[in-house]
């Protein structure tokens, strides 16, 4: 297997031109899938026999919760890549991804609380998954606050990478520890190994919205990374050319 693609990722110029052709299509595909999944889930999927129509929140809650965790996983991997190989794009990725992940965690918390009210009768319980998403949100906010309060770019890159890697190591421990506190949440809707227990007309729209949200976020992050590259490389010639030629 050739590792050329991996080395190319280290070049901001190559990455910028590559991301220009991918960001918009990914974003549009994401929007369409998300729209299909949500409309299908909201209007056409049958109501749950226990929870009634309130279960329709699942079509936004589960995708954002999955994204919130995947984003952190990606942050940790990027941090590791930066600490080991000093790859230039990794800190750009961390910087662009952290706010997106924080918003995902926030939506998961709010939509989960709203779902909890009709289902469990309270807005909030100190249950394993809720607590771990809350911690995830705090971890994201910590990374963002750290990046905003340091001035030196070298230090910002290193600090964000260090804290992402530490968070990645700590996240399984946090999850294990909060499971020891009691749990009220229903089990995971999707697992890779088992067939879902829901009927297909209920989980198919969910699949659409999950895939849609992944593409949506990928597009957004590519755009944010472009902005970050422009900011960081503003002295190089290709950026000057790029800005003058396509000023939007």
């Amino acid at each position: 297997m050739s590792w050329a693609w991996f080395h190319k990722l280290g070049s901001p110029k190559w990455f910028f031109s590559w991301s220009k052709s991918w960001a918009l299509p990914l974003f549009c595909v994401g929007c369409v899938c998300l729209f299909v999944g949500l409309v299908w889930g909201l209007a056409f999927a049958p109501a749950d026999y226990q929870q009634g129509n309130s279960f329709r929140i699942i079509y936004i809650h589960v995708p954002v919760a999955m994204l919130a965790q995947s984003c952190y996983l990606a942050l940790g991997v990027a941090g590791f890549v930066f600490l080991v190989w000093q790859m230039k794009m990794a800190p750009v990725f961390i910087k662009s991804m952290a706010p997106v992940g924080a918003v995902m965690a926030l939506i998961a918390l709010v939509s989960g609380a709203i779902w909890g009210k009709p289902t469990w009768g309270t807005w909030w319980v100190w249950d394993a998954r809720l607590t771990s998403v809350l911690v995830l949100f705090l971890l994201y906010m910590g990374i963002i606050a750290l990046q905003n309060s340091l001035d030196d770019l070298v230090l910002v890159n290193k600090a964000a990478a260090v804290i992402s890697v530490l968070g990645l190591i700590n996240l399984p421990i946090i999850k294990y520890s909060v499971v020891l506190l009691e749990t009220l949440h229903q089990g995971p809707t999707f697992t890779l190994t088992k067939k879902p227990e829901m009927p297909p007309e209920m989980w198919l729209p969910l699949l659409f919205s999950v895939i849609g949200l992944y593409c949506f976020v990928a597009g957004l992050v590519l755009w944010r990374m472009q902005t970050e590259i422009l900011k960081r490389e503003h002295r190089s010639n290709w950026v000057k050319q790029e800005v003058m030629e396509h000023g939007l």
Binding site: L138, M141, G142, L150, L166, G167, N170, S177
Partner: peptide, 26 residues
């Protein structure tokens, strides 16, 4: 991570306290 910031105490709290949760739970 925060030693170059003059007033870093609150930032350290925000950054580090989530990492302390498993210890207090166990």
């Amino acid at each position: 991570l925060t030693m170059s910031i003059k007033q870093g105490a609150v930032l350290v709290m925000l950054l580090i306290l989530p990492f302390y949760l498993p210890v207090i739970i166990f």
